[in-house]
């Protein structure tokens, strides 16, 4: 009999049932519970719960004559044993009844989950729902995450059935959601809900300034944008003094230039860190964000001009064995 998939505490008992190995060779911990022949197959209820359906309580069965011999043996044992009657002392049947019908299927956990969810959907189908799209935004666990936790090979289309049921449950009106629905939903949520992370819109202060922040390479820039005539000061200097390269000057005010707003706003900016190019391109982002605060309709135009997306590239770190990040030492014959 193949027992390798069983819990370790169970393996010993089953092995000795199959083979005629002496019990004395087993560990002393298990000896008392294997000492009597009647208890040979009994296991704790905790372990049993993990693998099998709850045992049939024969006492409550009407036909008590069905298992007379065993009952007698058990009673004898009770009189011998020092402790009182315990569930652990009950007889274990080697042929356990599976807890779930899907036990012999390929994806028992998945099937069980799906059945549970669908049962809940059916049960609470009558509860009022919110309109489509108005349900609280929730990110459920990803397929990869689900596969990892369940240990089953579940296909994407199969998992989408679970997600579909969860979405339906999520559409039940939040104030009327039963506790079991809330629990189920919570158990399927991702640990961190990305939709909770909302960007704060930039406010225009009482002086008419919008503060945008941008980063590029290792530079940071803050740009205060006010309505004006196109004057630019970077760290208290004019654009010419701040950036020697004409290209950098153009990058710094690119957001305004690309949207034809160069003579409509004044920029007062602070840059720090990195080099001139980094600072100039950090300013592009900073001015772009501040401009969106003034004129939100410009966002698509600014995105096309490349003033919205942060360039995440940084200097690649040096690696051991390399001369630089990727450069290898020169090949030497000897």
């Amino acid at each position: 009999m193949k027992v390798s998939w069983l819990p370790p505490s169970l393996r010993g008992g089953l092995r000795c049932a199959c083979s005629g190995r002496p019990i004395a060779s087993l560990s002393p911990l298990r000896q008392p519970f294997l000492s009597t022949s009647a208890k040979q197959f009994s296991i704790t209820s905790r372990i049993r719960a993990g693998i099998a359906a709850p045992e049939i309580d024969f006492d409550e069965l009407e036909d008590k004559n069905f298992v007379p011999d065993l009952q007698v043996a058990e009673k004898k044992e009770d009189t011998n044993g020092s402790k009182g009657k315990d569930r652990d002392d009950e007889v274990f049947y080697a042929r356990v009844v599976p807890e779930s019908r899907s036990y012999f299927g390929a994806q028992p956990i998945f099937i069980d989950t799906l059945i549970t969810l669908r049962r809940l959907v059916r049960k609470y189908a009558a509860l009022p729902t919110v309109k489509a799209g108005e349900a609280p935004r929730v990110a459920f666990r990803t397929l990869a995450d689900y596969r990892n936790t369940s240990g089953e090979t579940v296909g994407a289309s199969k998992y989408s059935q679970i997600v579909e049921a969860l979405r339906r449950l999520n559409h039940i009106h939040p104030s009327l959601r039963p506790k079991e629905v809330v629990d189920v939903l919570n158990s399927h949520k991702r640990d961190i809900n990305p939709f909770d992370n909302k960007t704060k819109p930039i406010q225009i202060d009482r002086f008419g300034r919008a503060l945008g922040v941008g980063k590029r390479k290792s530079s940071t820039a803050r740009a205060f944008l006010v309505e004006g005539t196109g004057e630019v000061l970077v760290n208290g200097k004019t654009l010419v003094d701040a950036f020697a390269r004409v290209h950098d000057r153009e990058s710094a005010i690119w957001a305004l230039k690309a949207t034809d707003r160069l003579d409509k706003y004044n920029v007062w900016a602070l840059c720090s860190g990195g080099g001139t190019t980094g600072q100039a391109e950090a300013l592009t982002l900073a001015v772009g964000k501040a401009l969106i605060a003034h004129e939100p309709m410009l966002k698509p135009a600014l995105r096309r001009a490349g003033c919205v997306t942060r360039d995440p590239r940084r200097v690649e770190r040096k690696k051991a064995g390399h001369v630089k990040a990727r450069k290898m030492p020169t090949w030497v014959k000897r």
């Binding site: 196109g230 004057e231 004019t238 654009l239 010419v240 003094d241 004409v246 000057r249 034809d260 003579d263």
Partner: peptide, 19 residues
């Protein structure tokens, strides 16, 4: 036109004539 002048004027550090 206004646009060209504004652009060159700003790029030249608020109208530095050499720039």
């Amino acid at each position: 036109d206004e646009k060209t002048v504004a652009e060159k004027w700003t790029l030249a550090g608020n109208g530095i004539v050499g720039e």
